[in-house]
């Protein structure tokens, strides 16, 4: 099982797309931006869906061991 490092960049506009798709993985912060709930997570379809659907391409996924970007 691969682990991913999850990052949300300051480009986030709080559209809530990822919150709806992967509510166990992302949450809205007091700063009005979304943040990952865990910095590293097991690979998960919901997180992939969120990253692929983000209108700002603000969700960055990388392989936690190799640092390679995850394709979606």
């Amino acid at each position: 099982m691969t682990s991913w490092r999850v990052e949300v960049t300051p480009d986030c506009i709080a559209s809530g797309v990822c919150l709806a798709l992967a509510g166990d993985d992302f949450a809205l912060g007091d700063d009005g931006r979304t943040h990952p709930l865990r910095e590293v997570t097991e690979e998960r379809e919901a997180v992939l869906d969120a990253a692929a659907s983000c209108p700002m391409e603000a969700i960055l996924l990388t392989d936690a061991t190799t640092g390679e970007p995850v394709d979606f």
Binding site: I13, S15, A20, G32
Partner: peptide, 18 residues
């Protein structure tokens, strides 16, 4: 005013918002 809901939110957040 960036937090407004004029484009909705969640999975149906306006596809054409940008």
């Amino acid at each position: 005013a960036g937090a407004h809901l004029g484009f909705g939110a969640g999975v149906h957040h306006c596809l054409g918002a940008q």
